[in-house]
């Protein structure tokens, strides 16, 4: 299936969860946040949340600012 991650298309196997995606992106368990189709997902829901075809995923982290 095809999803969009931070504005770029990406293919991944059906059933891919948010946790799977973060691992694929090389991100550790802390310091990141995820929104799917504009809705922020609580960290605790990541392992069970399977992404769907066409999902628009944003993965954010803290950077210098403010």
């Amino acid at each position: 299936m095809t999803i969009t991650v931070n504005g770029r298309e990406r293919t991944c196997p059906p059933g891919t969860t948010v946790t799977d995606l973060l691992a694929e992106l090389g991100l550790g368990p802390t310091g990141s946040a995820v929104a799917v189709n504009g809705e922020v997902l609580p960290r605790g829901t990541w392992p069970a949340h399977a992404l769907g075809d066409g999902d628009d995923v944003d993965v954010l982290t803290a950077v210098q600012g403010g």
């Binding site: 931070n6 504005g7 992106l25 090389g26 991100l27 310091g31 990141s32 946040a33 944003d58 993965v59 954010l60 982290t61 803290a62 950077v63 210098q64 600012g65 403010g66």
Partner: peptide, 17 residues
């Protein structure tokens, strides 16, 4: 100290966190 939230772009030089 304040930090901003932005799309991830892993940086080998490390992170503000």
């Amino acid at each position: 100290s304040t930090v901003a939230m932005r799309r991830v772009a892993p940086d080998p030089r490390g992170s503000v966190l």
